[in-house]
Amino acid sequence: MRRSTRRKINVILAEIALILITMVASMPLFLAVSISFQTPKEVFSYPPKLFPKSLYLHNYASAFDLVPLARLILNSTIMAVAITLGKLVTGLLSGYAYANFEFKGKNISFATLFATLFLPAETVMIVPLFLIMRKFGWVNTYWALTVPFMASATNTFLFRQHFKSIPKELEDAARIDGATPMQFLIKILLPLSKSMIGGAAIINFVYAWNMYLWPLIVTMEDNMKTVQIGVKMLIDAEAVNNWGVIMAGTIVVLIPTVVMFLVLQNMFVKSLVRSGMKG
């Protein structure tokens, strides 16, 4: 009796706390949507408005007008898809090597890879990496935006761990049936890893889509920039900060990852947590 009342009170308190926390945490996004539909007059009115009077779509048109948003979206898509695919392929192959094979130099090479786990080259070593791009003549190209990020220790670990969790007997059976190691990977392991691959894909995509510093310095021309830089361009675009337009651009930029994230939330959460567990 006492226990159940206490539990009830706890539930009510938790409900209230969650409502408050969610409201505060959603405020920035909610207001961004609201502002993106407000006329300049409404944006500048005091006290600030929570809701737009009507759906003023002009801000969205202006955002596309002020910066080549469509092109930036294309660039970001190319970059994010290429990095995602690259990371998946390299991660699957190397994860498979570490999980299912014994070979000379396994430990040393693994340590070499492990050492890069917390070394985001695009920030820590941005100067030399940039100079290398210059050497390659890759500055202001898709190569510079994609190739350096097509492998990561995280992806290797994720798939290594996943493959380790798949019973060894399966591989033995396949071998007896005459399957080559590559056939085993493609025909058996991959189908068993669908949700893992899906989750990793979202993590990689979000990471790539949201990159900022690297595209900022390595792209030169407007038509090579990415959406994140587009947001900064919008802020700098006019002699007066037109927040309605900036927010409209911001919404356009964040929609792809947010929608993808909401739709595939469960798959993603599982993979993300897996990526953090050690094997």
Partner: peptide, 22 residues
């Protein structure tokens, strides 16, 4: 014609482009 960002950015990009030979 290319708009290459702020004055800072433009100088930066010029330096990069000179090094890259284009």
């Amino acid at each position: 014609v290319q708009y290459t960002g702020s004055y800072h950015d433009t100088l930066n990009k010029l330096i990069a482009a000179v090094k890259a030979g284009n």
